[in-house]
Design a binder for these strands. Structure first.
Length: 387
DNA sequence: ATATGTGTTGAA
DNA sequence: TCAACACATATG
């Protein structure tokens, strides 16, 4: 289930994540020289073997091992939780109760290993719907975020919060009950996709006036075109047909070719329909993605250039209905109406497979998030590198 | 001073 | 992978 290459977060910040580099075990067989009398080694006061009177009743203060998977005793009587991945230990925090640590492990196992994770309690839990919500929740957060929550003991709270915020529609789709799109959903967390196939961001372009004008073509910046949509020699001028799926699942077919005259790569046939239907305006951002799974499905998405001015009465003298603010983002119209709740934002069809496994576009995404949320995401400091 | 979590190892 | 265990660091 592990896709393989996956970096869900760029390790741009100093990581405080507890990934214990288990390198030495590979390279240096036996470097450390320990004191010979390893008979009674005592670490931080615990595992001491005190021989009281007779060796038999030697009171062993050996730490009690846990009956739970992923749970290790701590010298102070508390319990630590850890999970391994790629030869590295990921520390999940310490807990007062053994079973809490075990539960933390379960969450991590679910996140890291998906459906067939071996867990301590998990399978016995709750109803299907609640389980789906949790899976969706897990899918909508990075491993690092989940680990961070576990370590801070905030996982349950955040999950509950999420449960309050999201509900199920009859068709199994998740939506937000308040009708507002979540921050995360702006940026392509898997929970927010029409299908939850992992996809990577390829590039974005702010469309120019001519891209949405009468020329019926979109110029693909050369660097992106050559990197993501390479054309075979034979096809350069002739072009190829490319299919892109939008957020609604609608497939758009564009002719993609190279114009020698202007030495540029363009989407031509089919493009004007997209512009028209999506009501694209100059400055709007079109975004291209590709699924990371085998099929390499292409996706297209867009968002309005910027949030329309909220208060300014743009319309000078005419009758105006300023009660409704509408923002269009990546194909989703978000209406904010004073006291009503209306808009349904589709986010996901609960499916299970743990994502995370294939976000090669993680870096770009991360940059985008940072650009936008730098201030609201301070807490996100835990980084999992190269998981 | 104590708690936390990392370094390391041996076993599975 | 996993957990045991010693111990270095972080924390208060």
């Amino acid at each position: 289930m592990e896709g393989s290459s996956s970096i869900d977060q760029e390790s741009t910040t100093t990581d405080s994540l507890s990934i214990a580099p288990a390198t030495s075990s590979w390279t240096l067989p036996a470097t450390k020289t320990k004191s010979p009398e390893s008979l009674c080694r005592m670490g931080s006061g615990t595992s001491v073997i005190i021989d009281a009177e007779n060796g038999v009743e030697a009171e062993s203060r050996k730490l009690p091992s846990s009956r739970y998977k992923g749970v290790v005793p701590q010298p102070n009587g508390r319990w630590g939780a850890q999970i391994y991945e790629k030869h590295q230990r990921v520390w999940l925090g310490t807990f007062n109760e053994e079973n809490e640590a075990a539960k933390a492990y379960d969450v991590a196992a679910q996140k890291f290993r998906g459906r067939d994770a071996v867990t301590n309690f998990k399978p016995l839990l709750e109803n299907q719907e609640s389980d789906d919500v949790e899976i969706a929740f897990l899918n909508s957060h990075s491993k690092a975020e989940i680990v961070d929550m576990l370590r801070k003991h905030t996982y349950i709270d955040e999950l509950e919060q999420s449960k309050k915020l999201y509900g199920f529609t009859k068709d199994g789709m998740l939506k937000r009950k308040d009708g507002l799109i979540s921050m995360s959903s702006f940026f392509g967390n898997n929970i927010d996709k029409v299908n939850n196939k992992a996809r990577e961001q390829l590039f974005e372009k702010a469309v120019t006036p001519s891209d949405v004008g009468k020329l019926n073509r979109l110029v693909i910046p050369k660097q992106h075109a050559e990197k993501h949509f390479p054309l075979q020699n034979g096809n350069t001028s002739k072009g190829v047909l490319l299919n892109f799926e939008d957020l609604n699942g609608k497939v758009w077919r564009f002719r993609y070719s190279y114009w020698n005259s202007s030495q540029s790569y363009v989407l031509t046939k089919g493009w004007s329909r997209f512009v028209k239907e999506k009501n694209l305006k100059a400055g709007d951002i079109v975004s291209f993605q590709r699924s990371t799974s085998g099929d390499k499905q292409l996706y297209i998405d867009f968002k309005a250039r910027n949030v329309p001015p909220t208060s300014t009465a743009v319309v000078t003298n005419q009758v105006q209905i300023p009660q409704v603010q509408m923002v269009r983002l990546f194909g989703v119209n978000i209406c904010k109406v004073p006291a009503t709740v209306s808009n349904v934002v589709v986010i996901d069809n609960h499916n299970n497979n743990n994502n995370m496994t294939s976000c090669s576009g993680g870096k770009r995404r991360m940059e985008m998030e940072l650009l936008t949320f730098e201030s609201c995401r301070k807490k996100q400091r835990v980084i999992i590198d190269a998981l």
